[in-house]
């Protein structure tokens, strides 16, 4: 149900935050993480690592996208679309929690 929300027109009003039980570290400019929930290791990459930093505290997706668009050379629409796709991937792996605003 929440994932469906991430694909709706109101997705940028939702709040995302890291889920508990993940250990992350920087490796060659990319963020590598271990999830105690899934028992898997993940590479979030450089931009994914920045997203991970930004969701240390609850943040609404619109503000998250605004911050990314101000820091990176990218059109806001593309930034939002690709950031949402990444958040969906993380949600499916139980790496984040999504809450209504």
């Amino acid at each position: 149900m929440i994932e469906a929300g991430l694909t709706s027109g109101h997705d940028t009003e939702q709040i995302v935050v890291r889920a508990e039980g993940n250990m992350a570290s920087d490796m060659n400019g990319e963020k590598v993480m271990f999830s105690t929930r899934t028992g898997k290791y993940y590479n979030l990459g450089a931009v994914g690592g920045r997203i991970w930093d930004l969701i240390a505290e609850p943040i609404d997706i619109g503000r998250l996208v605004d911050t990314l668009a101000s820091e990176y050379e990218v059109e806001r629409e593309m930034c939002e679309r690709e950031a949402l796709a990444f958040l969906r991937q993380m949600y499916r792996e139980s790496l984040i929690e999504v809450r209504p605003s």
């Binding site: 993940y42 590479n43 994914g48 990444f86």
Partner: peptide
Amino acid sequence: MAKQQWQTPELETLNVSETMYG
């Protein structure tokens, strides 16, 4: 301040041997 280059964020699942030993 110059903006950084955007790369599509992807969640890559690693296997342990890749993570620990290259």
